[in-house]
């Protein structure tokens, strides 16, 4: 169990760094969504199913969606 969670945390940190250093904003947003998604699995490991559900629905789902919407309202929408 510690191995699985440590591995997930490692991936989460890599995804977080990737979110900062990707050139493409869409990739960044998706990486940030991945961070939230992994966080929600980690919340489940920490015996917090309520928080896991909220993080998955709001953090990983809706937040990513509004980021993408904002992206298409700005750079992506006007240049292409």
């Amino acid at each position: 169990m510690p191995l699985i969670s440590s591995f997930l945390i490692l991936i989460m940190l890599i995804a977080a760094l990737a979110a900062l250093f990707f050139d493409n904003l869409l990739n960044s947003i998706i990486a940030a969504g991945l961070v939230s998604l992994i966080a929600s699995v980690l919340f489940y490991f920490l015996k917090a199913p309520d928080v896991a559900m909220t993080e998955a629905a709001i953090g990983a789902g809706l937040t990513t969606a509004i980021f993408v919407l904002a992206l298409y309202k700005t750079e992506r929408g006007k240049s292409e």
Partner: peptide
């Protein structure tokens, strides 16, 4: 069970 107003509301909004 796990879940509640925020989660339900978020699903509805989705």
């Amino acid at each position: 069970s796990p879940g509640g107003g925020f989660q339900g509301g978020a699903v509805i909004a989705t």
